[in-house]
């Protein structure tokens, strides 16, 4: 039986968010909703990355007065995951901005947000 630790809980939440995000991006027909689904997906990935670093009895990776220098490396949470999350947030913002810009421009042309109509291939 798996113990319901905080790490396990957040791993499951992140798997759920990833599922919801991918499903939304694939099956929803509205471009804006697809973009919202993408933000959910990237949230899920972020949650997975943060919970990688967490363990029971860890401390925040910021030195505070009175911390023991010798014990800090073993006690502090792993900082690799959180560092990558910052990057993923930045990438999420940039990708969302580009997607919204393209959606705005294509809406101006076609007057609809439905992906099935906007993205229909009409090659010359």
């Amino acid at each position: 039986m798996i113990e319901l630790t905080l790490q396990f809980l957040s791993f499951m939440a992140s798997a759920l968010l990833i599922l919801i995000g991918i499903a939304g991006m694939l099956f929803l027909d509205n471009l804006i909703k697809k973009i919202i689904a993408f933000t959910l997906l990237s949230d899920g990935v972020n949650l997975a990355l943060v919970s990688l670093g967490y363990f029971e009895g860890g401390v925040v990776a910021i030195l505070t007065p009175g911390t023991s220098v010798a014990e800090f490396p073993q006690n502090a949470v792993l900082i690799f995951g959180p560092g990558i999350v910052l990057t993923n947030i930045v990438i999420g913002v940039s990708t969302t901005a580009v997607l919204v810009a393209l959606t705005m421009v294509l809406y101006k042309r076609y007057g609809t947000l439905k992906a099935s109509k906007v993205l229909k291939g009409e090659r010359k």
């Binding site: 990833i18 995000g21 991918i22 991006m25 471009l31 697809k34 993408f38 997906l41 990237s42 899920g44 990935v45 997975a48 990355l49 990688l52 690799f80 995951g81 990558i84 993923n88 990438i91 990708t95 580009v98 997607l99 393209l102 959606t103 421009v105 294509l106 042309r109 906007v118 993205l119 291939g121 009409e122 090659r123 010359k124």
Partner: peptide, 28 residues
Amino acid sequence: ISQKAALKYTFFSALSGAGMAIALAMIL
């Protein structure tokens, strides 16, 4: 036509970029 190609590709890049981040998380 190029805006549509860009939009489609960016959507897929968002999807697979997240996938690559998951792979990165797992290797880490």
